[in-house]
Design a protein around this nucleic acid. Structure first.
Length: 720
DNA sequence: GCTTTTTGACTTTTT
DNA sequence: GTCAAAAAGC
């Protein structure tokens, strides 16, 4: 079994073979993190320190969990089925299914994904006649999830003013509604599981004595509740705590905006009195220049746990930087460069185009498309999020759990069966008075609308009867046919693809029963909520890979083009106001840079179309944080050719507009021009108002000063 | 009850 | 500039 440990570097080896005690592995980008984690599990099992049954490993994504299982199967001749390796949500779901009674849930409780949750909240606000201007559903969703992820129930939530008190009250109402319907949202899965173990002593003792080893991937991304859950399960503070092996990288924490708390790493170290902190700093991915740039950028962050990546590979090529005039020019240049890379033998799938925000992909796609280069964009709708699939699932959910109002509301009139807003309002009102679900309220109703609703209820009842003893794929098939979904999409002009997706749902069902541990309809529905389909890239597609920097985390490419490296975009202007927002942006930059193996391009545009209007920006401060000797400028340094408006071409085509007259009246200054101010330094003129002596110029000074309005008559500006 | 028009938002989003 | 959701119109 020593072969398991072959080819590990000293730090990796030390991590893998640590004695059973709390351990924190600071695994830098490309340092073999997954390898250490899986080898650790294999080592623990093969040396008899634990059994596959006695350990729990938790990840954030299904992809990571699957990969861990696959690698483990390849290392050890064991059946990984039944092992507690999965996502936080997947494991909590398993726990709650096994102990649904103790958790106070119906056997077939359903899981609301984010969209379902939002729909449920909207329905609640409507039922309670709450002004959704004052209490936007999205904000409320965020408020509820934020509290749940901090482990706070409505009855314990802080309320310091009327507005917040109202939100807490709505949170409480939402809890009641979910309980009534037998549904749980994502955060609830974790909170319920946590409360179950807190309150149920025998159950807690059982799992604590079972899982002697707990391994956590991407620990920097855990939220407060997940940390509490781990602490509880590990029996922290008890007589025989489990050995928690946490792997993470504080420098790659890019999900604080979703509640991830890097502070958990420090707390873990302190509260668990971690003696073994091991740093994996040798990088097996990138050439030296790329790592030097990444190290230099991240060094600007404070409160780091500290880490410096190094490599045995040479310095490699310089980082290439291209400054285009417009976003179109940027895209054009990138595509030309890609063509030349491909000519030199690069595989398309080894080239990635990364951007900070999704909106940036348009221009890039357009250019790739018109040049005829195959590309793939990641991050769109996932399979189980498609409308036709959600509709089909809603019928299935009603069969499994008729009280699921979200599912009811979704399909009660789809395909249309003459049940309109008015009937539904009536139904919702009586549901409130009887305190029953929409479905259960239908028999209480009288009058004309009741008839068509009764027909719908009858339809669901019939489907439930007819599918009672059928295997899952046939259940799905029956529902697709009898719900009228197939007929509806057959009649639709562009329903072809949707029909194909519905057929794909049959395949998904067939695959599910052949692989899953819980091959029931309820199991399938949970699977559909928890695993909406891959969002992340699959290797092997012969196409250029386009995605956000967030989506690129964990991936690597020979050549990476990081586009739109501009102040306001990256770092994003919205994040600069937030506490620690800039540091998170910097970590994001660090993630982006470390995706590249051999070649890294940074590109920016002096002007770009954003939200339907042209914006002018300066290069990102992050570019200035890279040592200049690592960078090769592919455009003349220092903006020798600043863009100005209107462009030369445009001037020929269109008569001078307002901006041109401003340009005339403002002492020769033009929009897009680079200027210097005695106090604020260099900036670009973004827009102008007024004329002559009263003219005001809006100037983006980037960096520390940002956007400023200056009176032309007062401010001493000089052209650069 | 369904279709068309209008309004408004617009950073990232593992489950 | 684009998309979806809300409001108005048929």
């Amino acid at each position: 079994m020593t072969s398991l440990l072959d080819n590990l570097n000293p730090e990796q080896l030390a991590a893998v073979t640590l004695p059973p005690q709390p351990a924190l592995i600071l695994a830098g980008a490309g340092s073999g993190k997954t390898r250490v984690l899986t080898t650790r599990i294999a080592w623990l099992i093969s040396t008899g320190q634990t059994t596959p049954h006695g350990l729990l490993a938790v990840t954030f994504t299904n992809k990571a969990a699957k990969e861990m299982l696959a690698r483990l199967s390849a290392m050890l001749p064991i059946n990984t089925r039944g092992m507690w390796i999965g996502t936080f949500h997947g494991l909590c779901n398993r726990l709650l299914r096994a102990h649904y009674r103790d958790a106070g849930l119906p056997e077939t409780f359903q899981i609301l994904d984010s969209a379902d949750q939002l729909a449920a909240i909207k329905r609640l606000l409507k039922a309670l006649n709450v002004d959704d201007e004052k209490y936007p559903p999205r904000d409320l969703q965020h408020f509820i999830n934020g509290n749940k992820e901090a482990g706070v129930r409505a009855d314990a939530a802080d309320a310091w003013d009327d507005w917040t008190r109202k939100k807490v009250a709505l949170y409480a109402e939402y809890e009641r509604q979910c309980q009534k319907e037998g549904v749980v949202d994502f955060a609830e899965l974790l909170l319920r599981a946590y409360e179950l173990l807190t309150r149920n002593e025998p159950l807690r003792a059982h799992y604590q004595s079972r899982f002697r080893h707990i391994l956590v991937d991407e620990f920097q991304d855990t939220n407060r509740l997940q940390y509490l859950w781990l602490k509880l399960l590990a029996g922290h503070g008890g007589p025989a705590p489990a050995a928690v092996f946490a792997v993470g990288d504080d420098d790659q924490s890019i999900y604080a905006f979703r509640g991830a708390d890097v502070g958990n790493m420090r707390d873990f170290e302190r509260e668990f009195a971690v003696k073994s902190v091991i740093r994996l700093e040798q990088n097996y991915r990138s050439h030296g220049n790329i790592l030097d740039a990444a190290n230099a950028i991240i060094a600007n962050n404070s409160r780091r746990l500290g880490k410096n990546l190094w490599t045995e590979a040479g310095a490699g090529e310089p980082i290439r930087l291209y400054e285009a005039l417009t976003d179109m020019d940027e895209a054009r240049w990138i595509v030309e460069e890609i063509q030349s890379l491909i000519r030199d033998g690069a595989a398309r799938s080894d080239i990635a185009l990364l951007y900070r925000s999704n909106a940036q992909s348009r221009v890039l796609e357009h250019q790739l498309f018109s040049t005829g280069i195959p590309y793939r964009v990641y991050g769109g709708l996932r399979f189980f999020e498609r409308q036709e699939i959600k509709h089909a699932l809603a019928y299935l959910r009603l069969i499994a759990n008729a009280d699921d109002d979200t599912a009811f509301a979704r399909v009660v009139n789809f395909p249309t069966r003459g049940i309109g807003a008015r009937s539904l309002e009536l139904l919702a009102d009586s549901a409130r008075t009887y305190n029953t679900s929409l479905y259960a309220t239908v028999p209480h109703l009288a009058g004309r609308p009741a008839a068509s609703l009764a027909v719908f209820v009858r339809l669901i009842e019939d489907m439930r009867q007819a599918t009672r003893d059928l295997p899952l794929p046939e259940v799905i098939d029956h529902v697709l046919e009898h719900s009228g979904l197939r007929a509806h999409y057959r009649a639709e002009r562009e329903g072809e693809e949707r029909l194909a997706n519905l057929d794909e749902l049959l395949n998904a069902g067939a695959n599910f029963i052949s692989e899953a541990e819980d091959p029931t309809l309820t199991g399938f529905l949970a699977h559909a909520s928890l695993e909406a389909g891959e969002h992340q890239a699959d290797a092997g597609q012969e196409a250029i890979q386009l995605m956000t920097v967030h989506a690129a985390k964990g991936l690597e490419f020979d050549a990476v083009f990081l586009t739109g490296v501009e102040e306001g975009l990256f770092p994003h202007e919205n994040s600069i106001q937030e506490t620690d927002g800039l540091e998170e942006e910097r970590r994001l930059m660090y993630v982006a840079v470390t995706r590249a193996r051999k070649r890294l391009y940074l590109t920016l545009a002096q002007s770009r179309m954003l939200h339907g209007q042209t914006r002018y920006s300066l290069k990102s401060r992050f570019i200035d944080e890279i040592p200049p000797q690592l960078i090769k400028w592919l455009t003349p340094r220092q903006a020798a050719q600043r863009y100005y408006e209107p462009s030369l071409e445009a001037a020929h085509r269109t008569p001078p507009r307002a901006s041109a007259s401003v340009a005339r009246d403002t002492g020769g200054f033009r929009i897009g021009q680079l200027v210097r101010h005695a106090k604020f330094g260099e900036g670009v003129i973004v827009s102008a108002e007024g004329s002559g002596g009263d003219a005001k110029l809006q100037i983006n000074f980037g960096g520390s000063h940002g956007m400023k309005w200056l009176m032309l008559g007062m401010a001493k500006l000089e052209a650069v």
